[in-house]
């Protein structure tokens, strides 16, 4: 089934929160994204997996304009991503992102990392921002760390802080770029638990990851990305039991046996 048919099968376009059509990107001469089509509806949890260098990270970074796509259209919550400065800023406010390397602000305290954007971008009062921040820190499980600095936290705590920081802006969509790849194994679970809770609360999420347990638990669809485009996608059960393409089978055999 093509992506477009799937979309028409589901609700009308008003429910679609991300629409990517024929997205191309070149790095110099290297054609990294080759005509990607993707539609995400509100509240859906999408997992993207694939070999390194396939372009999956580049793709989700195009969605919040950390990378610029050269051809095709990307529409987020009705706003099209063009060279329009206002559009770009509007989209970036609606999307939260969690990075593989956390990218926390080392010179600010934990609580300030979370309250910075709401105060300066959404122009909330300090009290309101702090209140929301404390709720978020409790939600991700690190309320007692509020006065410390990110460098004093463990890897798992830092990534959970990063999730809280992204949630502080009350985004409509959350992007995750390999959030657990830089963590020691014993800390992966605490981060995944937060992400599962987030998914169950109805957040629209696109997650690039190799954590297939997480995918089985909450994903609505899994996409296999290779060579700059989507090779195939399906619901988790179908994806793991009946992969259609050769490349998908090969990839699954590599990651599921280790």
């Amino acid at each position: 089934m093509s992506e477009k048919e799937v979309a028409m099968e589901r609700s009308d376009t008003a429910d679609q929160i991300i629409q990517c059509r024929d997205v191309h990107k070149w790095f110099g001469n290297f054609h990294v994204l080759r005509g990607v089509d993707l539609i995400v509806c509100k509240g859906e949890v999408i997992v993207i997996c694939g070999p390194s260098g396939s372009g999956k990270s580049t793709f989700i970074r195009c969605i919040n304009r950390l990378e610029e796509h050269q051809k095709g259209t990307i529409v987020v919550d009705g706003i099209e991503l063009t060279n329009d400065l206002r559009n770009i800023h509007a989209v970036q406010r609606e999307i939260g992102m969690v990075f593989q390397q956390f990218n926390l602000f080392p010179h600010l305290k934990v609580i300030d990392n979370v309250t910075l954007a709401p105060i300066w971008v959404r122009r909330w009062s300090k009290d309101r921002a702090v209140k929301i921040a404390e709720e978020l820190l409790t939600r991700v499980g690190i309320p007692e760390q509020a006065q410390k600095y990110p460098g004093q936290l463990s890897g798992g705590q830092q990534q959970r802080l990063a999730i809280a920081r992204a949630l502080a802006m009350q985004p409509k969509i959350m992007l995750f770029d390999e959030p657990t790849s830089a963590l020691d194994p014993e800390m992966i679970k605490e981060v995944l638990d937060v992400m599962v809770e987030l998914a169950k609360s109805g957040m629209t999420m696109i997650v690039v990851t190799h954590e297939m347990g997480f995918a089985k638990q909450v994903a609505d669809r899994i996409y296999f990305f290779d060579d700059g485009n989507i090779v195939e996608y399906n619901t988790p059960e179908e994806f793991f039991l009946k992969p259609r393409e050769e490349r998908t089978k090969k990839f699954l055999s590599q990651i599921l046996t280790h």
Partner: peptide
């Protein structure tokens, strides 16, 4: 800010990056 579904709209030049 126009909320469109699909057509590429003309970007007003004073906001074009």
């Amino acid at each position: 800010m126009k909320r469109t579904g699909s057509q590429t709209s003309k970007v007003p030049f004073w906001r074009d990056i």
